[in-house]
Design a protein around this nucleic acid. Structure first.
Length: 352
DNA sequence: AAGCCGGGGTA
DNA sequence: TACCCAGGCTT
């Protein structure tokens, strides 16, 4: 017990000197803590910070966020990925605004009931905003604890998850759980990094198991490799005189749910036969009369996600007759597009 | 328990 | 290229 307190004190001492100046650390407002935690799920601080600033300045409190349109929220979220976070953010904002009078619950058990809040985020909000003794176990914590204590239990199986959570709870400083949690994560991000950790200057280098046993590069243990699926997307980009195009909202349960895109023809391999597209244009999009169809990019654009590789071709369609339900390019600026499509639009706009 | 969900940075 | 990032939800 004394050892655990010593560990925490050493850690917090390091943190008070070496912590980064981050915007969400200026406040204990549960709304802002929650907002930052959702944005930072599986996201590097360098990538998430500007999004936090945008959301925090656009929506002063949870009521503003609750009253916003989902379209607005998705557009602000564009480029950050894992878009279910944005949809859940909106859903939880509405619940907290209406059922909790705008005040976040302070207990872990209430917090974890909210959409988009799991064990990690509930612990983070409870400890940082409400000083409740719950340990946060994120990727940093798995790494730091596995190395210092020499734990080889795989971190992506239930046994390991329980074991690390238990250890983190034991180590937690009940006097200041919020600072302790943030210190441990910050330490993982700045010192005990995945590759080339800074063991020379590490405050735990005399007791670190992995350093003594030279097992830094195998800890933490993670099993199973994910398989990457290859998909072939053919987008039909209508270029209508007067500055408009055809758009669809992705509604199915798949990547980019609720984001917008051009009419899509997906194939199981690289499109062989151009007449397939002609069929889509006539029978699915119900385009009357004649049109021109021209491939925009000679080489397919490769868009890599964590678990999919999207091989993409863009086809420019110019019909003689105006289709219905057009969206102006101007209007499109307010709609959330996958990065793959935003990149195309930016390029296409600049050359026309 | 396993699969799915983005985009970008690092070595 | 392979791995990782202040994870959570669905099946």
């Amino acid at each position: 017990m004394r050892e655990n307190l010593k560990f925490s004190n050493t850690l917090i001492m390091w943190y008070l000197i070496n912590q980064r100046d981050l915007p969400w650390r200026k406040s204990n407002d549960p709304y802002l803590i929650w907002l930052s935690e959702i944005i930072l799920q599986q996201t590097r601080i360098a990538q998430g910070t500007s999004y936090y600033e945008k959301f925090a300045s656009e929506f002063d409190d949870i009521f503003g966020l609750a009253e916003a349109d989902e379209k607005t929220i998705l557009k602000l979220w564009q480029g950050l990925g894992y878009y279910s976070r944005a949809r859940n953010l909106h859903s939880t904002a509405k619940i907290v605004a209406s059922q909790y009078k705008g005040q976040f619950p302070s207990s872990y058990n209430e917090l974890i009931k909210l959409k988009g809040i799991g064990d990690y985020t509930a612990s983070a909000i409870a400890s940082i905003a409400f000083n409740q003794p719950h340990a946060t176990v994120d990727g940093n914590v798995f790494r730091v604890l596995s190395r210092i204590f020499g734990i080889y239990t795989p971190i992506n199986e239930s046994k390991g998850i329980k074991e690390f959570k238990l250890l983190a709870e034991e180590l937690l400083n009940p006097e200041d759980p919020g600072t302790h949690n943030q210190a441990l994560m910050e330490f993982g991000a700045l010192v005990c990094t995945p590759k080339k950790p800074k063991c020379d200057t590490c405050i735990f280098n005399h007791t670190c198991f992995a350093l003594q046993e030279k097992s830094i590069d195998v800890l933490p243990v993670k099993l199973k490799k994910l398989k990457i699926r290859k998909r072939y997307f053919n987008y039909l980009v209508f270029d209508i005189k007067g500055g408009s195009t055809l758009l669809r909202q992705r509604k199915h349960k798949d990547i980019w749910q609720n984001l917008f895109e051009f009419p899509l023809h997906e194939t199981i391999q690289d499109l062989q036969d151009e007449s397939e597209l002609e069929k889509v244009i006539k029978t699915e999009l119900l385009i009357q009369g004649s049109y021109t169809l021209k491939k925009y990019n000679e080489l397919p654009i490769i868009h890599k996600l964590t678990h999919q590789t999207i091989v993409t071709s863009f086809w420019i369609v110019k019909p003689m007759e105006k289709p219905r339900n057009l969206t102006s390019w101007r209007e499109l600026e307010n709609l959330a597009l996958p990065v793959l499509l935003q990149n195309f639009v930016d390029k296409y706009q600049s050359t026309n």
